[in-house]
Amino acid sequence: MDNNKVITAHELTKRFGDFTAVDKITFEVTRGEIFGFLGANGAGKTTAMRMLSGLSLPTSGQATVAGFDVYKQNEQIKKNIGYMSQKFSLYEDLTVKENIRFYAGIYGKSDAFIKEKTGYILDHLHMTSEANKLVGSLPLGWKQKLAFSVAIFHEPQLVFLDEPTGGVDPVTRREFWQMIYEAAETGITVFVTTHYMDEAEYCNRVSIMVDGRIEALDTPGGLKRTFGARSMDEVFLKLARAAKRSE
């Protein structure tokens, strides 16, 4: 297979009873790409992400993630990806250092690796003096930046970010995207969902799901041309307004 493709999906489908949550989606994501995964509530994004991260078996279709098959090799997929969501990412009643130690331990990293990289990350985030503070006591913006660093601590090929900037102030939101760019520069592929349409502009390519299908997939510029729209917000509204189902 093509080693440059971190995700390949062909007619990937998930049905729950007679409800088709994800309906034959076909797309590829290239190594080092920042890929925006957009859609209205209930369009099927979460179900698709659960299949791609090895947590849910597809009903039909094929997909590989980080070179592994979603049916047979889902355990290898889990080891080669990172995941971060807005809702839950770190343990509030563990310290900054303990959280890093815990996640790195789960991914089987050596003590020497953990020690060296923990120092680097704390330094990079200017959080060295917070190392022994409980995560629950940190401001939200710091937590989100730390959560992202923890999600890519084990140097995965691909990281899934599920609304990573929800509720974050506008300055921190931009600092967070700076970190996404830095991660992509090191070759980590970024798969990100967001409700902020300005953030769609920061992606290399964007897909928009409507009623379980990928209705559009292109660069932000390409999408705006195709739909004769001035902004990604307009593109999104044009597509999502046509949706038949809500959650």
């Binding site: 209205a40 509530n41 409700h195 349409m197 999104f236 809500s246």
Partner: peptide
């Protein structure tokens, strides 16, 4: 409107 998509927010 937190966590609600752009269409439902409008």
């Amino acid at each position: 409107t937190t966590g609600v998509d752009a269409v439902s927010r409008k």
